[in-house]
């Protein structure tokens, strides 16, 4: 349960917390949903990276969530279960591996991202896709921390 003394009306714990700033929340939703509705990057790649960031930051709430766009695009629970040891399994494609490695450094050691790391992603993503992908990582990382720090519970299964 969040330690915020007051919460707003809303359908989910996240909405009740962020809804304390309704204008900001509405604008955040419009921004964050574009990564899924406009599909500037493969939703499976995005979902794998979102979940990997949740693992690294220890966010059970983010780990419990699933994006339906990724499920519809073929991401299975079996592959999600393998995510914490993705380097040691053949279950992930070359683009997924490059993006997961990049996402890990983005989260844990952004200065450690090398030209080779970026080139590995750029071998699979166009410049517009790389920009969208990196912005998506910023949203996943930032708002996973937002949930953790405010103690926001998991949303109902979506």
């Amino acid at each position: 349960m969040t330690w915020l003394p007051d919460t707003a009306a809303g359908a989910t714990p996240f909405a009740r917390a962020f809804g304390l700033r309704p204008e900001l929340f509405a604008q955040y939703q419009m921004f964050a949903e574009l990564f899924w509705t406009r599909r500037p990057v493969d939703p499976v790649v995005l979902e794998l990276c979102r979940l990997r960031i949740a693992q690294l930051l220890g966010s059970a709430t983010e780990l419990a969530a699933r994006r339906p766009e990724a499920r519809a695009a073929g991401l299975t629970e079996a592959r999600i279960a393998a995510l914490d040891h993705w380097r040691d399994t053949p279950d992930f494609s070359a683009v997924e591996r490059a993006c997961l490695a990049f996402a890990e450094k983005f989260t844990l050691d952004p200065h450690g991202v090398t030209d080779a790391d970026a080139a590995a992603v750029a071998a699979h993503l166009s410049p517009p896709e790389m920009v969208a992908f990196t912005e998506a990582l910023a949203v996943f990382d930032g708002f996973t921390r937002f949930r953790l720090i405010l103690g926001i519970e998991a949303d109902p299964a979506r």
Binding site: Q27, L34, V131, E135
Partner: peptide
Amino acid sequence: GYQPELLRAF
């Protein structure tokens, strides 16, 4: 600028 819609929303 590669992603103008994302940029505007942000």
